[in-house]
Amino acid sequence: MKQHSLFDIISPVMIGPSSSHMAGAIRLGLMAGKIYSSTIKKVTFKLYNSFAETGKGHGTDKGLMAGLIGLSADDIRVRTVFDLEEVKKIDYKYEFSHNLDRHPNAVDFIINDETVISGNSTGGGNIEITKINEFETSISGEYPTIIVFYKDKPGMISRVTELILEKHINVATLNCTRNAKGETASMCICLDSPAENGVAEKISALEDVYFVRNIDKMDS
């Protein structure tokens, strides 16, 4: 269960006008950028439902882009993000649609025509990354998180977690999903304290590991 903090109530310091449509959008962008973590030349933002309907009026389009290039939820440059040099270099577009199977405030980032990252703005500036390409995930940014894609075979989970335990880091939650036996699977590991960089590198060096990201907790 999520622990309630005083700062859930008296924060965040943020760019208006709406925590779900702006602060949440910025944080979704930030998270997508961290997950992709290479140069972004092209991006399509697909906004769904309430994000699509009232997104423009709330500046959700600006927020998503601002986060993607690394601006935080209290950075006043969000307002004029499309004028920034680094944004002018990106080939971007926005699509708006309705899909009742999706969350009211859902977005897909299609980056460089190769990676699709999906997420929801779940209220009060909180977010959840629900999918990276074909993998279901549940990343909220509340904990430092390690994401691993690997070949589904016996012993992989213990090999990865051993490398974490070596550093005396406690695993808060561990979620694994796979598409079919023996194919690619994913692991989302939430930690109680951040893992040093070395850990991710050691995990990447394991046989049959395809993709690793070590993502910091987001500021509230």
Binding site: D8, I9, I10, S11, P12, V13, M14, I15, G16, P17, S19, M22, A23, G59, K62, D74, I76, V78, R79, G124, G125
Partner: peptide, 8 residues
């Protein structure tokens, strides 16, 4: 779209 403190 100015900077404010959400409270709550």
């Amino acid at each position: 779209m100015g900077k404010i403190v959400a409270c709550p």
